[in-house]
Write a protein that binds this DNA or RNA. Structure first.
Lengths: 230, 230
DNA sequence: CAGTGGTCTAGACCACCAG
DNA sequence: TGGTGGTCTAGACCACTGA
């Protein structure tokens, strides 16, 4: 075969679904049958069907066969990058300004997320990320010093905390949430936006195993859109 | 073997990366070597490594080997469901109210997205989605009548346009974008929110092949968050 | 029970990359 | 040129489903 046949099969199957030949809820022929229809091995058919199942187009159950999903489940996938990459990918020059960098008693929501004790202090860092010198995002971050002690001596003027942490502690797990918030007066000034503007906010907490490293809220400039294709 | 060995391998590889044994940028042993190390076939190792490559943890190149990514690429994945499912999954009772449902000349941005001619009309539908009787989301939708003529006779009082379209024309492709917007006066009234509130907006266009079916803006109630785990 | 998908294996061929 | 990952194959065993 051509060496790309699992991709070819996937396309063909998808077309038979989209084209209405295999209707929602209907059973798809068994792997063995498809294999002989297409003149390839069952392994190849299996691979193509598993890929379609991952995208939510079909549903497979051992013993019960493969069905076209009644309501396809759409998965929107976004690539979360470092802010600098995001800006540079748009062809702008990156810069950042640190507004605050000091140890302070962590507020309740931070203590909860980072699993800190009542009176624990954490490193509070406020940063404005700039694209071509203009504010692009405002970052409000708390770092668990115990989980990343080297942050205290990191050269944050040269490399943003965001990026430093990704480099220093890669391969973390994390929670992420997208919300819309109305800027507060002080953030509006930093971001040079009208008071009351609506900003897209990314709220993220990351950990490595049992070490809860950092939690952050990132407010994007007005009009920023997170886009993808389904 | 246990019958789950590709998942076991994947975990093991991930741990060796997270644990620092395989450092960022470093070359990972070749598939054949790993296969003999773990006492399994190369096919199984290949499957585990391909899965890790998809998650962005490693990078593989024919001829050049497999490396741990210097900066792991994080993929945030959201499941896009019908509004009703969203509400019912949260344990609330779904309802909806149609505010408008009529043919009208499409504005420029709609004509562009649906590939309509200058003077084309399209169906304009405004809906408020309710959770336990309270506004949950406001939907501003335009439907290309040529692409879905049956919409004109759809029982929209019983089934929302959102859901009707998904049922009638499943398996479409689409664009989707998330932004934050400040509510306008009229939307604020419909949503029973204070004027000027920030809302999370989902802006979506869907098509099937060359038939551009519909475009929609969905404004969620204040405080709504789109969440996932990385 | 027969049929289904999930998985693993051993072997093979190829495209690609580096030295 | 030798080693790498990408892919396909044929065969096998198993867990699960439904009649």
């Amino acid at each position: 075969m051509s060496g790309m046949s699992h991709a070819v099969l996937r396309e063909s199957f998808k077309n038979r679904i989209v084209g209405g030949e295999w209707k929602p809820g209907a059973l798809i022929p068994a792997e063995e049958i498809l294999a002989s229809d297409y003149g390839c091995s069952r392994t190849t058919v299996n691979r193509a069907l598993q890929a379609l199942a991952e995208t939510g187009l079909i549903e497979r159950r051992r013993g019960a066969g493969t069905r076209v999903k009644l309501l396809p489940v759409r998965q929107a996938q976004f690539t979360i990058s470092v802010v600098r990459d995001d800006i540079e990918a748009a062809g702008a020059v990156y810069g950042h300004r640190i507004l605050l960098n000091k140890k302070a008693p962590a507020p309740a929501y931070v203590r909860k997320r980072l699993h800190l004790s009542e009176k624990a202090k954490a490193l509070h860092i406020l940063t404005v990320h700039l694209a071509d010198g203009r504010p692009h995002a405002y970052e409000d971050r708390w770092v668990n010093i115990a989980a990343a002690p080297a942050i205290l001596t990191a050269p944050l003027a040269e490399i943003s905390a965001n990026e430093w942490l990704v480099r220093e502690i890669p391969y973390t797990s994390g929670d992420i949430a997208f919300t819309a918030v109305q800027v507060t007066q002080d953030v509006a000034e930093m971001m040079e936006t009208p008071a009351g503007a609506a900003l897209l906010c990314v709220d993220r907490t990351t950990w490595l195993g049992k070490k809860y490293v950092t939690t952050m809220k990132l407010y994007y400039r007005p009009g920023y859109a997170l886009q993808t294709t389904l």
